[in-house]
Amino acid sequence: MFSLAKLIKPALGLLAGATMMAAATSLAAADDTHVVFVTHGQSGDPYWSVVKNGMDDAAKTLGVKAEYLAPETFDMAKMAQMIDAITASKPDGMVVSIPDAAALSGPVKNAVAAGIPVIVIDSGGSKLTHDLGGLLFMGQDEFQAGVMAGERIKALGLTKAVCANHEVGNSSLDDRCAGFAKGLGVDVPVMNGVIDPTEMKNRMIAYMTAHADTQFILAVGASGAEPTLAALDEMGLAGKVKTGTFDLSPTILQAVVAGKMEWGIDAQQYAMGYIPVAMFDLWKKYKIMPIADYPTGPGFVTKDTAASVIDLAKQGKR
């Protein structure tokens, strides 16, 4: 004889336990400011973890309830559905990244139409933000940042370069590569990689083996830069093949200090997490909102300045 209760009780117990763990993290008062971030980058990513740290620190300091949401993989349909769900849940403010304008414009417009104030961070740009009815854009002009990177490498007299893209389909990263090619003044091939660091490293080793004349590698984010550094170390090319990257991490900064990397382009993404929370809190309490965009980058962190930033990067602030 089998017993229904014997099987279902532990299952329901597990479900109840999981639910209580989730519920325990969300005991905010109803009158707290409620801000939701919906981005395309997972909170475990080296770049986006800093955004989330900024959000968490601001929420803790100001007594605001803030949530960070992102699809498990780079998926615009999933992200659009998340924005729709958050719109229906009616937070006091929504912070979004817009890596694909065509896919996300509709859901963001709907959020604005539903009376939810929206701040756009990281990707999307100023014009799109205001076209959609967003309050302001925080971030950097990715194409222009790429141009500046290309010009720096051109000044070193290098022409054979590759752009390592770890997140295929993200138009902001495509802009970085395109800007870099323009700044360098030559066609730059794009090596399409993946988020997984081991796979990314292996692809970079294969690419460099096949293209041994490559003089410079531009990584378009920390998730591409760290495996690239590991690949060059493994091949004995660290410091010989020059590299640069968008975004910072402790590993990147140590590589810059050690001369294995030319620079890291700092978008100051901690501010992208912190400042919108503070802005929405001011907006809810006093109807105060800045009237201009907030450019956070690009800033080139070189050997001269990297050492002073390493400790902050280890704390997840840079």
Partner: peptide
């Protein structure tokens, strides 16, 4: 999970269970 105010990091745990 987005309507509850629960930390969304736990969503996968709830789905798994």
């Amino acid at each position: 999970i987005f309507y509850t105010g629960f930390d969304a990091n736990w969503a996968s745990l709830i789905i798994g269970v």
